[in-house]
Amino acid sequence: MTALKEQPTSGATSGTTSSPAGPRRPRNRRKAAATGTWNAVALFVAAVLGFPIFWMLITSVKTSSDINRLVPLFWPHHFTWSGFAGVLTDPIFRDDLLNSLVITLSTVLISIVVGFFGAMAIARFRFAGRKVFIVAVLIVQMIPLTALTIPMSLLLDSAHLKNTLFGVIIVYLMFTMPFTVWTLRTFIANIPRELDEAALIDGCTRWQVFYKIILPLVGPGLVATGVYGWVLAWNEFVIANTLLLDNTKQTLMVYLLQFQSSPTHGADYGGLMAAATLTALPVVVLFVIFQSRISAGLTAGAVKG
């Protein structure tokens, strides 16, 4: 999204920007050279950060005897797709993928909607209890989740929500929503209030101001927090493992456990890495889909004060 959208500041590629190119033209050549250097730096950073990912990917197609070699194999001798095949043909993987999607999508959508309202309140309004609300949201973030496992379990038990996807979604809101409130507050605060006011004077309703002005402008923030919530909910393990009792209800994180060693079989690292790759892919795909939607509604001109 934002990360991928056209940037006026990035000189060399600024063909689509709305800002007049006039004052910058004389510096373009030097800028292009600088951009080239920065591109090289970016590639280097990507290579360093990406190396563990590369290692995960090649491990997922290595045969077991090529993993953990004394002389590390940077490219497998033999490719094996049995890890991927095993995971993709496993009906439990498909069940768990669906469960993970339901839990994660619901968590993200609810926390974005609920968090956005909360963020609007503290970014745009003054009201009694505002500070209490801010601190409460902060403290919630500090509670170590592992300590809450038993109390949460008892709570859902008495509400008859244990062993349900909905129960887990509620628990996940606890750690995705506060972050959403906090981050969106900042993004909303950065939007000039004059924009809302001008729109109100132009005859927009409050709802239209929200929908037509604020929502598109916090797009990058929405995506950043959305992906954040997605990643947290998608990767959570302790709560999912404790509260979801049936195999048909468990999530992908619980699924990954089966590749570890147990008292009667060894660890299947190729399978684990294949499953982990397949678990990580949805986040990347999601992000790519979102970016095209969001950047369409986000024009550089609208951000100008």
């Binding site: 496992t149 038993i150 379990s153 008892l154 038990d157 008495s158 008859h160 244990k162 062993n163 393990f237 302790v238 493992n241 404790t242 509260l243 009792l245 619980v254 456990l257 089966q258 570890q260 147990s262 008292p263």
Partner: peptide, 17 residues
């Protein structure tokens, strides 16, 4: 799965469902 199993047992036995 063995991993985290006692926590799962504890929380299940502590409840009623």
């Amino acid at each position: 799965q063995w991993s985290n199993y006692t926590t799962k047992l504890d929380s299940t036995f502590a409840g009623s469902s």
